[in-house]
Design a protein around this nucleic acid. Structure first.
Lengths: 220, 220, 220, 220
DNA sequence: GATGAATGAGATTTCATTCAT
DNA sequence: CATGAATGAAATCTCATTCAT
C-alpha cells in the first residue's frame, strides 16, 4: 500500500539542495536558488540546517546513504562466482546511473580535499557491507580455483570505481576531446559490457610475476 | 646552458591562476588572490585576459597543451607492441603526475558541462596525435597476432583514462570511505603496475562473444 | 485630513535616485550615493530594481507619469479657445517648473538616443490625452474661425515644447554666452508671457502660402 | 588650390574627442576610446591636454568657435529686414545642422551647470558679433516700421535658439512619445519653414499690452 | 514554523592617470 | 614626440546571513 506523504519542508529543501549542489558545486550553488525552488524562504533553510555548509553535509550524507542502499539491495551471494561478479558490477553501475548527482557531489568534494566527508563518521561505515560482499565473492572464486589469489578487495573496488565513474564524471571533456558519444543509452550499455569483460578477465587471470613499475627493460 | 629568462607578467598571472583554479575551482577561485600572488594589481589581469572567465580559458588551454606535450615526447613506435603499450601507459601516467592541476581543472570543467572547453577549438586538435599513437600500437599488435582485433582506440583511451585519472581525482573520498592509502609513492607505483597488467591482459585476450548487457542469465 | 504615511524603502530609493540621475546623468550618477541618501545599503537597491539601469528606467517612468499627471489635471475644454490655449500653455509651463528633474532626465535620455525610453511601452501612452486636449482646442478654435486651419497638433506640441523646455535645459550656457539672467522668478514669468504671445499669435495668423525652405529670393 | 595637410596628432585627438564626448557625454566618454580611435597612445592625450577635463574644455571651445564661424560667414546686412531675418534664421539653422555635435556637447554642459564653459573667457566673446547682427536687423526693421519695437535681442536669440535646437536635442524622446518622424530631410526643411514663419510673424506683430502672467481671468 | 526586509563584507570589473623607456 | 606596462581608487554588483514580526 503506497502512502504518498506530503513532503516536509526539510525534505523539500534537501531535494532541491541536492540538485543545486550537484549542478553547480558548493561554491557555485546559491542559497537563494535552493530556497526559491523549495518554495520556502531562506530562513527555513537556516532554521533546519544552520548554514550553507551544514546543508551541504546533509546532502552528502543522504547521497552516500542512498547510493549504498541501492548497491546493497543485492542478494545473490551463493552460486557461480563469475556470475556473481558480473552481477555485482552491473549493480554498482546501475546504482550510479540511478543516482547521477553522486558523480558531481563526489567530484566537488574531492576538489575540496574531502573536507566535508572527513567530518562525517557515518559515511565511513556505509562502505563496510559493500566491501564484505566483494571479499566474499573473491574468496568464493578463489576457493573454486577460478579467481586469482592476489586481489586486494579495496584496490579492486577502486578499479571498479574507476571504470564505472570516470566515464560519467569526465563525460564532457572526453566527448569534446575525443569526438565520441558517451551520452546515448547504447553507449552506456556497451560500456558496461566492456568493463565487465575487463574486470572478469582480470579476476580470472593468472598471478603475474612482479615487474619493476616504470621503464623496466626485460621480460622473461 | 640554461638561460633563465625573467617571466613576463602574463606568464606569471597564468602560473598563479592555474594554481588557484586547480585548488578552488572556477567559482571558488579569487581574482584578488591570483593578482596578489602574481605580484601585480588586478587590472593587469583584466588587461591581459579580459575577465575571470577569459583567464580560466587561457589556463585550460595551456594545461591541455602542457599535458599533451608531456604525453607526446614519446618516441618508441617500433619493436614489441606489448612493450610499447606498457610504455605508453606509463607515459600517460607520469604525464598526469607531472601535471596534477589537470585533474582538478578537468574535474571542474566537467562540473560546468565542458562549457569553456567547448569554445576552444585548439583543445580538440591536441588529442589527435595521441589517438594516432594508440591506433598504431594496436594495429601493430594485431598484425603480429598478439592483440585482439575488436578494440576501438577511442574507447580504449577512455579505459586508460579511467584507470589513470580516477584514482587521483577521487583520492580523498576513496581514502576516507575505504580506509586505504592512495597518497604514498609506493601506492602510486603499485597502481601503475596494476592497471598496466589489466590493460595489457585485456589487449591480449581473445575476442569475446557478445552477452546481453545486463542481468544475463546464462554463461557458456 | 492628510495622513502622512511612512514611505517604503522602494519609494525612498526612487526619490533619491531621481535626484541623483537628474543632477549627474546616468553615467555620472553613483549607486552608492543614492543608497546612502536613502538611508539604506546598496543591496536593497539591487533587490528592488535589479541594476543601475533598472533603477534608471523606473525613475524615467515615474517622471513621465508625474509630469503627465500634472499636465492633465486641467479641466477647461469649453469656452474661449484663445483663453483655453493660454491656459494650456501656462499649464504645461508650470508642470515643468514643478518637475524640474524632467529636464535633465530627458536631456540625458536623448544623449543616449532614447535607449531606455524606447523599451518602455507605458511612456508612449502617456502622451495621448495631452495630444487629445491640444487637438480639441485647435479644432474648437478653427470652428470658431479664430485659429488657422493648417496646424498639425504634434508639430504644434513640438513647438510648445521647444519654447517651454529649451530655456531651462540650456539655462547655463545661454546665461554665460549671452550674459542674461534666466534664473529669477521675474525672468520666468516674463518668458511665459513671451512664448504665450508667440504661440497664440501663430494660431491666430492666416495660413501662409508656401515658400521654398531655404534661400528663397522673392516675396509677394 | 587645396592643400590637404596631414593632420597633427593634436588635431586627430581633438576630432575623435569631439565625437566621443558628443556621443557619450563627459562621464560616459572614455579616454581609452579616444586614444584608440586617434591611433595614438593615451599618453599623447595627456601630453597635449593634461587631463580628460582639459581635453573636454578644448573640445568645447573648438565647437563654439566652429559654430560661431559658421553662423557669421553671413554678409547681408542691408536690404529688406524681413528677408534679412529669414536668412539669419536659415543661417543659424544650417550652422547647427552642420555641427551636430554642438547639440550634445551643450546638452551635457548644461547638465553639469555650465561648469566648464564658465571657465572659458573666450566663449563669452564669441557671441558678441551674432548679437550685433541680430540687433542691427531688428533696429533696421523698426526704423522701417515693419518690426515691433519691444524686442530684446538677447531674449529674441533665446527664442530662436529654442525653436532651432530643441527639436534636435530632444529628437529621440519626442519621436517616441509623439510618434512623429523628426529625422527625415523633409521634416527638417518643413520645420525651418515653420519656425521662420512663427518668428517673422512675431517680429511683425503689434506691441501687445501686458497681461498677468498666469491664470489671468479676463481682459477688456 | 514561517516570512519579507535588510545588511556587511567582499566579489568582479572599470578607468583616469602615471611610470619607465 | 611616442609608447607599453602598470596602478590606486573607486565603481557596480553579489551573497550568505540575520533581524523583526
Amino acid at each position: 500500500m503506497v502512502e504518498r506523504k506530503k513532503k516536509t519542508s526539510k525534505e523539500r529543501i534537501l531535494v532541491q539542495a541536492t540538485r543545486e549542489f550537484a549542478a553547480k558545486g558548493f561554491d557555485g550553488a546559491r542559497v537563494d536558488r535552493i530556497a526559491a525552488k523549495s518554495g520556502l524562504s531562506k530562513n527555513m533553510l537556516y532554521h533546519w540546517f544552520g548554514s550553507k555548509e551544514g546543508l551541504y553535509v546533509a546532502v552528502l550524507e543522504q547521497m552516500y546513504e542512498t547510493i549504498r542502499e541501492r548497491q546493497q539491495d543485492f542478494a545473490l551471494r551463493g552460486g557461480d562466482p563469475v556470475e556473481a561478479m558480473r552481477q555485482l558490477i552491473a549493480h554498482i553501475y546501475s546504482a550510479l546511473i540511478a543516482t547521477p548527482e553522486a558523480i558531481w557531489l563526489l567530484n566537488d568534494e574531492n576538489l575540496h580535499k574531502g573536507k566535508h566527508v572527513k567530518r562525517s563518521t557515518r559515511i565511513r561505515e556505509l562502505y563496510n557491507p559493500l566491501m564484505d560482499t566483494i571479499s566474499e565473492i573473491l574468496t568464493h572464486g578463489q576457493d573454486q580455483g577460478v579467481f586469482r589469489t592476489d586481489i586486494d578487495p579495496a584496490i579492486f573496488y577502486v578499479t571498479i570505481s574507476s571504470l564505472v565513474y570516470h566515464r560519467f564524471a569526465n563525460q564532457y571533456t572526453l566527448e569534446i576531446s575525443l569526438g565520441v558519444d558517451l551520452s546515448s543509452q547504447a553507449s552506456r550499455d556497451s560500456w558496461l559490457a566492456h568493463i565487465t569483460e575487463i574486470l572478469v578477465r582480470y579476476c580470472q587471470g593468472e598471478v603475474e610475476e612482479k615487474r619493476l613499475p616504470i621503464k623496466a627493460k626485460k621480460t622473461a
